[in-house]
Design a protein around this nucleic acid. Structure first.
Lengths: 249, 249
DNA sequence: ACTGGCAAATTGGTCAGTCCACCAGATGAG
DNA sequence: CTCATCTGGTGGACTGACCAATTTGCCAGT
């Protein structure tokens, strides 16, 4: 047994001159801690890289490795010429990692869709329970826009309000974690949404389902919202499946 | 106005000397592509940093920023002295980002638990449908170990087989994406599992529920497995809630 | 011939300094 | 007062160097 814990502490007056595993990991942990303790709120600006490097007692390249990592993960917003600042929300934090997850596990589209269905139905139910008046308005506004483009010759006009409709429901559910997970899932099967949409001859049927969902959320009927969303997912899944069968023929 | 865009291009004949947004982003995209196309299988070793930097036509610091990011996301395993190698699986890819997500959104424990419940029930149902004989054996082995420690004076002995039991079910569900998401959720509420476990006077009741889940999975009764897991989650949630009430008093 | 330990080569970890591109606020002309 | 321009600050990227950990293989001792 060796007892050598008391290293002579230099007169450190800055942050904490690194102690743990690697310099970069330590920097990241420190910044994470600062965010957690609300020392840096979302959107607040960090000191310049040169200044921060001096305070942390590390070189700029090392600091940059840490900042880059955080930026890539969506924790920081880095603008050339301007500075680094904490991101406004954790909306993008899962994006890049999720892409790698899909690259690694290479799940089937069907599995992704089932996961989406699971969470989407859940959030629809919660949205019916917790939506505020403003959030309901956003949902119904998106629905109205969907109605407008029902007869639009360009079917891609449907995409934007459709996306907005679902996103509004997610927001109304007040569950940011699942919201972001779902957002990543949706991105993973984005192509499939596009293709399955084309499987419908008419947009009238899907529109009516969306309207049913919105109605249930308006009346705060959780179970009805869940059923309607479930029906929506089921139809979309079937359309997707039909498309796969056609393409495999 | 100065027009100085056409720098003389050195004779680069290696990979592709960077084209897009930033150097680091481009490197990450290239490596991601290499993994996706199975040019680098899981566990395979990358060239040394100096070599890779030369091939990519970038400086070592830039390359290191990229590698560091990938390492922190769990895509790469970096060992000092040895080299960089692709991770064995995407198991850790979401870990760190998820921590940041929780730091950012600061969700309530209740919300996290609801999310866990949602996915856990879903996976239990799938496990009943898709488990292989080996996976069932792993589940029942964990259950047997849980039975052994029922009378153990040290309540923390319960934790390990309990964790193994759930992990075995996740594996048997064959849905890696949701499995990893759930794993991160569980980690986020890890403390709560510990505390809620202490809320039970006896471990007999929770053991019986686990046995019920395993039985349903054995008989491949999906809906029964879902109901049992749902019951398990409900009890744990109530225990957690009771604990919160006591601590707030 | 075998084995154990030591040393050199390899590779990641860190640093200092330099130059370039970009953004923003100050500054001066209209 | 308005607007174009300039300048200081900031991030982006590179070079070169040195340190530290690991691996490898050679060599001495058995």
């Amino acid at each position: 047994m060796i007892f050598t814990q008391e290293k002579s502490e230099k007169g450190v007056k800055f942050f904490r001159p690194v102690q743990k595993t690697s310099v970069v990991n330590d920097i990241i942990e420190q910044i994470k801690g600062l965010i957690r303790d609300n020392r840096f709120g979302p959107g607040s600006k960090l000191p310049s890289e040169r200044e921060l490097a001096k305070q942390l007692g590390v070189s700029r390249p090392s600091l940059r490795e840490a900042l880059r990592t955080l930026a890539l993960m969506g924790v920081l917003d880095t603008r050339h010429g301007a500075g680094n600042q904490i991101a406004d929300s954790g909306a993008n934090v899962l994006r890049t990692p999720f892409e790698f997850l899909i690259v690694f596990e290479q799940p089937s589209v069907r599995d992704l869709y089932e996961a989406r269905e699971l969470i989407e139905v859940f959030l629809a139910g919660r949205a019916a329970e917790r939506r505020t008046a403003e959030e309901l308005a956003a949902i119904e506004a998106a629905l109205a826009d969907m109605r407008k483009v029902l007869t639009d010759p360009d079917p891609s006009a449907w995409t934007e309000p459709n996306l907005r409709f679902h996103a509004a429901i997610w927001k109304a559910a007040h569950h940011p974690v699942l919201e972001h997970v779902l957002s990543c899932l949706r991105q993973g099967i984005h192509l499939c949404i596009e293709t399955s949409r084309r499987a419908f001859q008419s947009l009238v049927v899907p529109y009516e389902i969306h309207a049913k969902i919105a109605e249930a959320i308006r009346r705060q009927q959780s179970e009805t919202a869940r059923r309607a969303m479930s029906q929506h997912m089921k139809l979309a899944r079937e359309a997707l499946q039909k498309l796969e069968e056609n393409s495999s023929k």
